[in-house]
Design a protein around this nucleic acid. Structure first.
Length: 428
RNA sequence: GGAGGAGUGGCCGAGUGGUCUAAGGCAGCGGUUUUGAAAACCGCCGACGGUGCAAGCUGUCCAGGGGUUCGAAUCCCUUCUCCUCCGCCA
């Protein structure tokens, strides 16, 4: 969502953004809807002004004038009743289209169509050269009895799983490690609701276009969030921040629910792509200033990298191209962790973190504002990044730290969170 | 789940059918005074939209939606949220 005045004045630039982001939106239809809406407003406002005028005249009118005015008032009212639906439908059309308007990518975002056009920025650590054939996470987790694969699929459906024993402990450990890292870096930990109303989904930009991705609780008109970004950003919907209260930095911890519609048959093996997972997510509100947002963005990125460093997982950072960044994102970096078992055992870098700046996209949709130093109103910028998402993060964790005998040597930083255990040995 | 009460600008709060064009206060902004600050005093000050080069003119908004009326913050219906009590409950 952008300011309609900005869209009118920069139609070509917006058109370019729509094309580069591969959005499905006809800008001319939007501009036409805007025109229709404004025409209806002009006409309706004239009638409403007359209505108000008559209403003020009647109390002061003489006995003779009064019935005449009341008659005219009735006529004006009838006219209004005809025009109001016209404006309502023009508005509806306009708002529908506005919800599909992308934010403008930042200049540094490479133009491209798909993943192959993302630009790698750096690699940190290097994939380990195994002196033996490494196992993938499915073999390792099965060997360690970390997962019950079959039971949940019978009663909870495909892509479901249950973490068992050390598997469950590992999830709690990496989660807590991430939380402690972020708290130490000044973020406020939040455990938010995971069931939210539609406005939270729309306000954060996941609806209407991503509706099929969300589980809905139809009896109560609630939706399960796919990330705590949704409740954390919505925490401040309708709020007006004072400029002195920004930035606000949160770390949310929640279960996340994704239908993975459209991913049928993709990554069905193991725990790479599941319907329910646990994620620690970073969310920032900051002043609407690109330089500030950039600083916050790279701070979020470095927080995630610090966690990967503690987990001793090799990774690479890439900046996503225009075709790969979402509707609201103005800039996105992906952090991909090295997973030795992926790609049929050849190993591959795969996404474990996604760091985004959204400009004022979410603030506009969620009606979050900030009182600027000059007293005017502004829309704050929002940013977010994964800190850790489990079980996906367990894949590189286990695969990178495995030994020839199937045991796992835990990274030093994780040991305290595993009650002092340094090595996980497969149960007999 | 049942009964009752409440929801007004960034915040507090007055307002029960027609000068509401929403009082008043706090906060904010500008100024006077002051070595500086505070205090005091003076002035400005809701949001969003439409129109206009501009000054301005104008519309909408009193939790959301719908209704009654020539006219609604005010009356009616409904939903949501909060509070009190009762019931149930980890």
């Amino acid at each position: 969502m952008l300011d309609i005045a900005f869209i009118r004045n920069n139609a070509d630039a917006v058109r370019e953004a729509i094309k580069n982001k591969r959005c499905d939106l006809d800008l001319d239809a939007l501009l036409a809807a805007d025109r229709a809406r404004r025409d209806a407003i002009v006409e309706l406002d004239k009638k409403r002004a007359r209505k108000n005028e008559i209403a003020q005249l009647i109390p002061k009118a003489t006995k003779e004038e009064r019935p005449v005015l009341i008659e005219e008032g009735k006529a004006v009212k009838a006219g209004l009743e005809q025009l109001e639906p016209v404006l309502a439908s023009a508005n509806q059309r306009f708002e529908e289209l506005m919800l599909r308007v992308p934010s403008m990518p930042r200049p540094e975002v490479p133009v491209g169509r798909g993943e192959e056009d993302n630009v790698e920025i750096r690699k940190v650590g290097s994939p380990r050269a195994f002196a033996f054939t490494p196992k993938d996470h499915v073999e390792l987790m099965t060997l360690h009895r970390m997962v019950n694969w079959d039971g949940p699929r019978k009663y909870a459906g495909g892509r479901s799983y249950a973490l068992m024993g050390t598997g469950a402990l590992l999830e709690l450990a990496v989660t807590r490690l991430a939380v402690d890292t972020l708290v130490e870096r000044g973020l406020t930990i939040v455990i938010p609701p995971v069931m939210v109303k539609e406005r939270a989904m729309t306000g954060t930009g996941f609806f209407p276009l991503g509706r099929e991705e969300a589980y809905s609780i139809s009896a109560d008109e609630l939706f399960l969030v796919g990330t705590s970004e949704v409740p954390l950003v919505s925490l401040h919907c309708d709020d007006v921040f004072d400029h002195s209260s920004l930035p606000i930095r949160y770390a949310g911890i929640s279960n996340c629910f994704r239908r993975e519609a459209g991913a049928y048959g993709k990554d069905t093996k193991g725990l790479y792509r599941v319907h329910q997972f646990t994620k620690v997510e970073q969310v920032v509100f900051c002043m609407p200033d690109e330089a500030i947002a950039e600083r916050e963005h790279y701070a979020l990125l470095s927080n995630a990298e610090a966690i990967l460093a503690k987990l001793e997982i090799p990774y690479r950072v890439a900046i996503a191209c225009t075709g790969e960044i979402g509707l609201g994102q103005t800039r996105k970096h992906e952090v991909e962790s090295w997973m030795p078992g992926r790609d049929d055992g050849k190993g591959a870098y795969n996404e474990t973190h996604s760091c985004s700046t959204l400009g004022d996209f979410q603030a506009r949709r969620s009606n979050i504002r900030v009182r600027m130093p000059d007293g005017s109103m502004g829309y704050p910028f929002t940013l977010n990044n994964t800190a850790v998402a489990s079980p996906r993060i367990l894949i590189p964790l286990l695969e990178n730290h495995q030994n020839a005998d199937g045991s796992i040597t835990l990274p030093e930083a994780l040991v305290p969170y595993m009650n002092g255990v340094r090595t996980l040995t497969p149960p007999a």
